[in-house]
Nucleic acid binder design. Structure first.
Length: 263
DNA sequence: ATGACGTCAGTTTGACGA
């Protein structure tokens, strides 16, 4: 079973790229972030025409996440629990039946947090704390759990081209990395570094200043796994080729192959 | 160098992103 995550930076602007990628790669489950669309205006039909089921959690203009899957989830959860007054659409979770049990998959769009002297940074840290609380509950289920998405966290200096440039940024501040490490310390495995610990495995290149051409990238899209999921992980691939397509997203897909089969 | 570049909302320029 192939499970992927991709921040597409606008579903309407990226529809052709998405359909081409789905056709070429045929993932079983794809977690999308930054759909920048309301649920009712999400272009479901052409995706369904490829044989996919679509679950969205959108909002007007910004943010928005979705789950695209070859089979419908048995249940879904929209929004990260723990703050009923949070109206930003950044979390959707689905439970999928597979042979011998279930896999629980979340599409996550963690807040950026810049500028750090605004209320956006405390919102980011509070969101990470809520995520930790939620994940600790989910881990008690002892299920295969896959937390995939744009974390807006550069975990290590080797996950960016020039750490000095990121020193004061919300993606790389010590408090940000501490929160990410605290989350991982619940017992999660990073799919990328578990299979290849090398530096420079970027998932994002800015549109500006020729970042792609200079390979000035960062690794901020991650797939964190419970041990029950990590036991089934076969391979992980960052599909950086997609960054060179026409009208690309600034993020590329992260794809993991697991030894699960549909029920 | 709070800039470049891109998307969205919805009217032409501002908010937001990383």
């Amino acid at each position: 079973m192939k499970i992927a995550t991709w921040n597409i930076n606008g579903i309407k602007a990226r529809q052709d790229n998405l359909l081409a990628w789905l056709s070429a790669e045929s993932p079983d489950i794809l977690c999308l972030q930054e759909i920048k669309s309301q649920d009712e205006s999400f272009p479901r039909a052409p995706i369904e025409a490829l044989g996919y089921h679509v679950e969205t959690h959108g909002q007007k203009g910004f943010n928005g996440v979705a789950l695209i899957s070859k089979k419908a989830p048995d249940e879904t959860c929209r929004g990260l629990p723990g703050a009923e007054d949070d109206i930003q659409s950044r979390y959707i979770e689905g439970v999928f039946s597979v042979a011998g049990g279930v896999v629980r998959v979340a599409s996550i769009y963690l807040p950026n947090g810049n500028p750090v002297d605004s209320d956006k940074y405390p919102y980011k840290l509070a969101w990470m704390s809520r995520l930790k609380d939620h994940v600790s509950q989910q881990l008690a289920l002892e299920e295969p759990l896959i937390l995939a998405g744009d974390y807006n966290v550069i975990p290590r200096p080797g996950d960016c081209h020039d750490p000095d440039l990121w020193a004061g940024d919300a993606l790389f501040l010590p408090a940000t990395r501490d929160a990410f490490n605290t989350l991982c310390a619940l017992g999660l495995y990073d799919a990328v570094t578990s299979t290849d610990d090398a530096a420079g495995q970027y998932t994002f290149w800015d549109y500006q200043a020729g970042a792609w051409q200079k390979n000035n990238g960062i690794r901020i899209d991650h797939m964190l796994l419970s041990c029950e999921a990590a036991d089934r992980l076969r391979t992980t691939i960052i599909d950086k080729n997609v960054r060179g397509w026409e009208k690309p997203s600034d993020h590329v897909p992260l794809v993991a192959e697991f030894s699960f089969d549909w029920a």
